[in-house]
Nucleic acid binder design. Structure first.
Lengths: 223, 223
DNA sequence: AAAAGTATTTTTGTATCCACGTATTATCAA
DNA sequence: TTGATAATACGTGGATACAAAAATACTTTT
């Protein structure tokens, strides 16, 4: 459904799980802005539960880097500085580089065509101006990661995508460069097709690092 | 003090923080074995607090991959399969590879000597049979990571070291190969000295990947 | 002995209460 | 008017008691 990365099995809803998903979704969609305070009672009331599971969810969200939890000062939405954004893209580059490298032996012609279909859907979403583009884009990267068959790797990359999703959304809204993106992603598929693992790794790394500066333009250098 | 990685500022002790550190430390030292159940009330009694902060700490520990939290079935200590161990070393290899690459421009002769002193202390600890060796080893890797000046990268690598620490300990206890390790780490310093970023990255990757199979021998193929 | 139903224990979540730290506002002096 | 200080309101962190749901253990019956 909403998750581009199929990392979490997402069955059986404990209250804490529900709170975690609820707030994470709101954060991904940019409903809360960096610096906003999250009051446990308010959120608990929104979903109809008590404060405790919400506070437990806060711990996980803090662990994910989505919020900051300061003693006696509550829970505030985390914002990324330009430096932090670059850092995340550096980490993504090596992690997703590893993912393609590991994905290659497991990838056949059928998969290539699947990826190309995903790319088309991504471009269509981009042309229609739908912010679905961000979800499709995540789906593309998520698909390749999934091919690596490395659960922990997939999980880590997924977590990073969640953190940058709000910034991807404002980036997409303010500027539409979906077709330059299209070329880059097509290059990734081509590299995968080439059968050269190290080359594919390099292409993925370059692709990810090249998008960082564009995204950084839309993040204010303050805070 | 105990943390080889200087990631967490570790001031101001909220109850949850205390519980988190307490259990994490116990897990790192291998006081609990994989599969052991952690009962919130027992741990709460140990440190003299109520169950609530302990449960919150569990969420973070689960997020770190140290415990598994299954709905209605409580908290059990996570164990690593051989596959998972290999996966963590794959991730470490690219992450710490990135770290050395980024560390290089910031590293001067003084640092090289610091690292060599660390290496000596590591070897001395290894020869005396002290399991301090594991801590020193973490310190060595942690120092290089710190030189990268990337907080999130340092944090992620640190988290992985915490997960594998219990296995490093049993590995060290059962077999003493501290001097083959010495050579490898000296090679890392030499690569750093060379000034060739990509070469240093590769050396670090190879070093980490080479230790995985040795460690894996000491992990029983069952969970 | 196997199956079904019952009881007990454990986990999970709720509700309520209090102490303490933080932030805001109000008051007062320069 | 401005700046410093005191009073106050608020939210967080934590404790405790309680209720409900699920899992496990234990009967009892056939």
């Amino acid at each position: 459904m909403s998750a581009a990365f199929p990392a979490e099995p997402q069955m059986s809803a404990t209250a804490e799980e529900e709170a975690y998903r609820h707030v994470q979704r709101a954060l991904r969609l940019g409903r809360y802005k960096p610096g906003d305070r999250l009051i446990p009672e308010e959120i608990a009331a929104e979903i109809g539960m008590s404060r405790m599971p919400v506070r437990e969810a806060f711990r996980r969200l803090a662990s994910d880097g989505l919020v900051v939890l300061r003693p006696n000062r509550g829970c505030v939405v985390a914002g990324l500085t330009v430096d932090e954004l670059y850092e995340i893209f550096e980490i993504r580059s090596v992690l997703e580089g590893l993912a393609v490298r590991l994905a290659m032996p497991r990838t056949d012609e059928e998969e290539f065509e699947d990826l190309e279909r995903l790319l088309e859907r991504m471009e269509r979403a981009g042309q229609s101006g739908s912010s679905d583009w961000v979800v499709r884009h995540q789906e593309f990267h998520g698909r390749i990661c999934a091919l690596s068959r490395r659960p922990k790797l997939i999980h880590q990359i997924s977590a990073l995508h969640v953190v940058i999703e709000p910034y991807m959304r404002i980036w997409f809204d303010d500027c539409d460069k979906p077709h330059s993106a299209r070329e880059e992603h097509a290059a990734v598929i081509a590299a995968l097709r080439s059968g050269d693992e190290l080359h594919a790794e390099k292409v993925m790394q370059d692709h990810i690092l090249s998008t960082a500066p564009m995204l950084a333009e839309f993040v204010s250098p303050s805070r």
